[in-house]
C-alpha cells in the first residue's frame, strides 16, 4: 500500500531522511501503523504533538490502508 505522509513545520526536514518517493508517499508491503511510517522516516516520537489521518485527529497506533494521508505536526507556539 501507498501512504502519503506530510511532515509540517520543523518536521519537514525529516521528509528527506527515509525512502519517501517524489510524490511524498511511502510504500508498505505489510500492514502498518502511523508509528511504522514515522519510524521509517526517522522522526523522533518526542518531537510529535499532533497526528492526523485523512484530515482527522488520530494516534500513532492508527492502522493504515492504501492511499491514506497522514499529517504530523510538532508543537507550535510562536506569536
Amino acid at each position: 500500500m501507498k501512504i502519503e505522509v506530510r511532515l509540517f513545520a520543523s518536521l519537514a526536514s525529516y521528509a528527506d531522511h527515509g525512502d519517501m518517493d517524489s510524490d511524498g508517499c511511502l510504500s508498505f508491503k505489510t500492514p502498518a501503523t502511523i508509528r511504522d511510517a514515522i519510524q521509517r522516516l526517522g522522526v523522533p516520537e518526542q518531537e510529535i504533538k499532533l497526528v492526523f489521518l485523512n484530515g482527522v485527529g488520530a494516534s500513532l497506533d492508527s492502522s493504515l490502508k492504501d492511499r491514506d494521508r497522514v499529517g504530523i505536526f510538532p508543537p507550535i507556539g510562536g506569536g
Binding site: S10, K49, G57, P75, G78
Partner: peptide, 22 residues
C-alpha cells in the same frame, strides 16, 4: 490537545524563527 501534557519536544518556532510573513 494543542498544548497539554508533558512537553519534551522543542517547539517549532525555536527551530524555525518567526519572520514577518507568517
Amino acid at each position: 490537545m494543542l498544548y497539554g501534557g508533558q512537553e519534551t519536544a522543542c517547539s517549532a518556532e525555536h527551530q524555525l524563527g518567526t519572520p514577518v510573513l507568517s
